[in-house]
Design a protein around this nucleic acid. Structure first.
Lengths: 151, 151
DNA sequence: GGATATTCGTTGCAAGTGAGACCGTTGCGT
DNA sequence: ACGCAACGGTCTCACTTGCAACGAATATCC
């Protein structure tokens, strides 16, 4: 009977690495801030776009709308973001970081970029090929929201 | 202020790809069998080792022992595996697939390998470099169990 | 040999998740 | 202008998850 070695199975390895990187990524914000992954994604997305709606956050960060809703609420409770009603379409709200939120964002981002840099450094001369291959994978498996985020 | 583009951030991309591949992997067993990811991992591990304990499954497949325990129970309820008490150490049990379980394993594994082959094919000439880079990443982020598995 | 610590596996519990119902709002067809 | 479909966002519900506590069995130390 044909067998499969799980530890060599590509989907398993991808998930395992993704989870391990996410786990190590906690060292970026863990020591100073208490953030969940969805909250980090929302923070990063608002920080990137200045002002954005919850729907757009979900689309850009591949998160289910309920997850976005809860993360937004959590950040709002911490006074890291504020909602501004959109009078042109009162179904949606514009979200923006507060001064406090911007300061947190400003502290986390450099560490995140440094963290990423260390990963790339570990890849050495294979970094370029790896990143190019990632893009092919992203293209091959595009579409749909992505449940069960680890990071 | 330094910004970060989430869609280019490596940890995010890794998680996104991992989730997307897992989602597509459902096409391997989804049409014919109703399996969760932990159940698939347990099935694959027992199929690989013939006879194994729950602790070893957890170690080999990077799963928390409670997750293993529940997946084992689910497979047992489906008569896909059976427990055999270990008289040398009665704390643990030896797990093995039943005839039914082996037939399911035998049907899924070729499809899984084919699925993996298609991924590698999509990578084209970058496949080799990608797999080598994966090993470096695995080495750099080794250790610890891996929570929140997507696949 | 007997107390104590450790291990394997299960279970109770609290937190997080996605599907779907839901409310208020807006767009569209007639 | 009106009715109805579609949308943004929240909420409820069933389910999954990891942690901690647990019971039974074994290992360790004196």
């Amino acid at each position: 009977m044909t067998k499969l070695r799980l530890e060599q199975f590509l989907p398993y390895r991808l998930n395992r690495i993704s989870a391990a990187v996410s786990r190590d990524f906690r060292s970026v914000y863990g020591p100073d801030f208490d953030l969940t992954i969805p909250e980090w994604r929302v923070l990063a997305t608002i920080g990137q776009f200045e002002t954005i709606t919850a729907r757009e956050i979900g689309h850009h960060s591949s998160m289910h709308k309920t997850k976005v809703s809860r993360a937004v609420k959590a950040l709002e409770d911490r006074r890291w973001l504020r909602r501004k009603p959109n009078d042109a379409d009162r179904r949606e709200e514009h979200l923006a970081l507060t001064e406090l939120g911007r300061s947190v964002y400003g502290k986390i981002v450099p560490r995140a970029l440094d963290f990423e840099k260390r990963i790339v450094a570990a890849l050495g001369d294979q970094a370029e090929a790896f990143l190019a291959a990632l893009e092919r994978l992203e293209a091959a498996h595009a579409g749909g929201e992505t449940p069960g985020d680890v990071l």
